[in-house]
Structure formats: structure tokens, C-alpha cells
């Protein structure tokens, strides 16, 4: 299959950037989106051009490195799928595909489709941890956890921190990411001692990074490759209110 790509090219953080059109020829429907870009890049290199820079690592949907806005949707229109797991068979032959980086002030473009997501790291540093005595792993049954809580905590913990929620949010809010991190710790016994302080410091850090506020549009959860539910944001809000009531 053949595709017309309109990809964002930006040589560096200072460059203003522009959309550039490329032809992707002889694309196999079995290729992943990233493999398709690899092929295009090989052609670009052979032609003496600069390849399109994009983030990627595991290519099996669990690391959270890849991510681009494809045809106006973070990670493409295939639901609950990372860009690396998106296959070309979901595109029509001859289609035009626009590819843009995550757009948010706290995610400055490094090059082309690569954005700097250190803001997420700083949100985690602000409180996304539990202080427990290190040592050998405790027995699995030494701390009882309700099945429902364990399920919800695990659902939240599947967040891979890719940033699609920020990219899709009309407000550029990092609420779903922050809420997922807050939820998976606050539902478990190990997370209780720091629970309230955690919500406050992580939300405050999210604001300090320049992310927008949540208006409950649900765009984030719709594009989340892990389907993190909006319930996590309700939990975050609840913990944040408790933190401020103190």
C-alpha cells in the first residue's frame, strides 16, 4: 500500500517547525506504524535527507516511549493501542496521514516528533513513591488487600506514562497521568502513610509544570493505550480536597 505522510519536522527546540509531505511507497499492511516510519526514514537517509526523529523503545506496547498524534488522535484511531502496536492494515491504501508530536507547553519538542516528557518525571518525584523499609520481598499474604482495591490499583498501575492523555486533552491537562499514579499507590496499604501529602504535592507539581486543568471531557481516557478510567481523577480530586482540608 502507498500512503501520503504529512509529518511535523522541527530541527530542534528553537526551530519553529512545519508540516512536510512524504510519500510512503510499498508499505506492508503487516508493518507497525513505527516500522512504516523506519522504512520511510531509510529512504530519507538514502536520499541524503534527515530522517524523521521519533521516540520508541520496546515496540511491544509496554514502555510508554512511543507516541505521536496520528490523524488528529493520540496513538491513532485504534483504541487502547500504542503507536508501536498500531498496524498499517488499519489505514486505507492511498490515504493521507498526518503525524504530529504531543502538543503541550510542558512537553517541549526536542526534534520532529520527539518531545521532552521530563515534566512527568518531576510529578513522580514530587510524590509518586512509597517510603518502605527495603529488604527482601515480603510474603505475598502478609498485607491483605481487598480484591476490588487490588484490581483498581492494578488498572491504574498499568499507566505507562506515554503522555497521550496530555496530548488529547483540550486543556493540556496531565490529570489522568497524575491521577493514575496517585490511585495505584493510594489504594494499597503501603501507600497510606503518605497518601494525603502525595496528592497535594503531585497535583501542585502538575500545576507548576504548566499543565492545564481537568474539565472532565474524557478525551484522555478515550485515547489512553491502557484505558485508565476517569475514576482515578475522582480519587485524585478526593485526596487533594482532603489534603487541603487539613
Amino acid at each position: 500500500m502507498n500512503l501520503t505522510l504529512k509529518a511535523w519536522r522541527q530541527s530542534g527546540p528553537k526551530d519553529s517547525g512545519r508540516m512536510v509531505t512524504y510519500q510512503a511507497k510499498d508499505v506492508s499492511p503487516d508493518m507497525s506504524f513505527l516500522e512504516m516510519l523506519d522504512v520511510v526514514n531509510e529512504q530519507l537517509i538514502l536520499a541524503g535527507d534527515d530522517p524523521i526523529a521519533f521516540d520508541h523503545d520496546c515496540r511491544e506496547g509496554i514502555c510508554g516511549m512511543c507516541g505521536m498524534v496520528i490523524n488528529g488522535v493520540a496513538h491513532g484511531e485504534q483504541r487502547a493501542t500504542t503507536t508501536c502496536q498500531l498496524h498499517m492494515r488499519h489505514f486505507e491504501d492511498g490515504a493521507t496521514v498526518t503525524i504530529e508530536p504531543w502538543r503541550a507547553a510542558p512537553f517541549p519538542v526536542v526534534k520532529d516528533l520527539v518531545v521532552d516528557r521530563s515534566a512527568f518525571d518531576r510529578i513522580i518525584q514530587a510524590g509518586g513513591f512509597v517510603s518502605v523499609p527495603a529488604g527482601s520481598a515480603p510474603d505475598a499474604h502478609s498485607l491483605p488487600v481487598r480484591k476490588e482495591d487490588a484490581d483498581d490499583a492494578f488498572d491504574a498501575a498499568t499507566c505507562i506514562g506515554c503522555g497521550a492523555c496530555v496530548a488529547a486533552c483540550p486543556n493540556g491537562s496531565a490529570s489522568l497521568f497524575t491521577a493514575a499514579k496517585i490511585t495505584h499507590l493510594s489504594l494499597l496499604p503501603q501507600g497510606q502513610p503518605e497518601r494525603i501529602a502525595r496528592a497535594k504535592s503531585m497535583v501542585d507539581q502538575m500545576d507548576a509544570e504548566g499543565f492545564g486543568g481537568c474539565t472532565n471531557t474524557g478525551e484522555c481516557t478515550a485515547v489512553c493505550p491502557k484505558g485508565i478510567p476517569l475514576d482515578t481523577i475522582a480519587r485524585m480530586n478526593s485526596d487533594y480536597l482532603k489534603a487541603n482540608a487539613k
Binding site: 490523524n71 484511531e77 504530529e100 502538543r103 488529547a168 493540556g172 504548566g210 499543565f211
Partner: peptide, 25 residues
């Protein structure tokens, strides 16, 4: 909040498609 949201996305998308079925939002 609207101004904060505006500052959070200084560069707009060329193409943007809503994925949540909620036009009221």
C-alpha cells in the same frame, strides 16, 4: 482555567479529532 489551558497548548494541532462522545463538553 481557560487561560491556563490556552497557555498549556501554545502550538495547536494541524489535525485534531475528538474521541470522547461528549459534544456538550
Amino acid at each position: 482555567l481557560a487561560r491556563r489551558a490556552g497557555r498549556a497548548r501554545p502550538v495547536k494541532y494541524v489535525a485534531k479529532k475528538s474521541q470522547a462522545q461528549g459534544y456538550t463538553t
